[in-house]
Design a protein around this nucleic acid. Sequence first.
DNA 1: TATAGTACTATGTATTGCATAGTACTACTG
DNA 2: CAGTAGTACTATGCAATACATAGTACTATA
Lengths: 121, 121
Amino acid sequence: MSAQVTTENTEAQMRKGILELVILSVLARNDAYASDIINELKETKLIVVEGTLYPLLTRLKNGELLTYRWEESTQGPPRKYYTLTEKGREFLKQLNSTWDDLVLAVNKARTQSSTSNSNQE
Amino acid sequence: MSAQVTTENTEAQMRKGILELVILSVLARNDAYASDIINELKETKLIVVEGTLYPLLTRLKNGELLTYRWEESTQGPPRKYYTLTEKGREFLKQLNSTWDDLVLAVNKARTQSSTSNSNQE
DNA sequence: TATAGTACTATGTATTGCATAGTACTACTG
DNA sequence: CAGTAGTACTATGCAATACATAGTACTATA
């Protein structure tokens, strides 16, 4: 069945690639386990669910951008606390740049008049 | 074979959903055929290739956000000139809003300090 | 021992960007 | 008229990620 064109669907597509950026950003500030990350992103209106987050954390760890340690908890099972690696920090810098460029380009494409407008600063 | 974590790959993922927005934005300004769109986006540093653009234009047309008319050309085959529909204009407004919210949220997540920073405006 | 809450793993689906191969139209040249 | 180059478009399949769903395991409490 072909996809319906809806803003919900397009937003889901827009989120692809972006969650990686914001999760690395959260971990650049503090070590965290999954629930910390979910709560911190919720404050910035980025809703991430566990079924998305766990596979993504695993991908990032397998890509050597993250490491983790187990920590006991008194509230339930032990938790995986994730830490950004040095490689992860470098990657995040590049990703920030990529994101900034993309947002600039999209906003230009959204507002640009005809080709004679290229001297706009 | 598992994907390598590269900024090129993540940028490709980030572009998902975004091309729809910028193509509709181009067509909100002027009717255009595929090559016009490619050239106009190139000026804003958004590189789109034909193999991506044609299927996307077809999807948007099938979703009733676009219509087209054939126009003869003296340089080669006839061209499909695309026009935004009224439904397309409404959809684009919603998409603009979705995009603005997403960019704001991502930028907040990138820079936010701990939870005590919530009174920042 | 059983249950609720919490943390994580495994798996599959839906969707789009993109590459590749192919067909068709027009102008130009021989 | 036939052949070629340039241009415009169609058809198809692959790669990758967001997300849903089902399941397992740990801890505290009754």
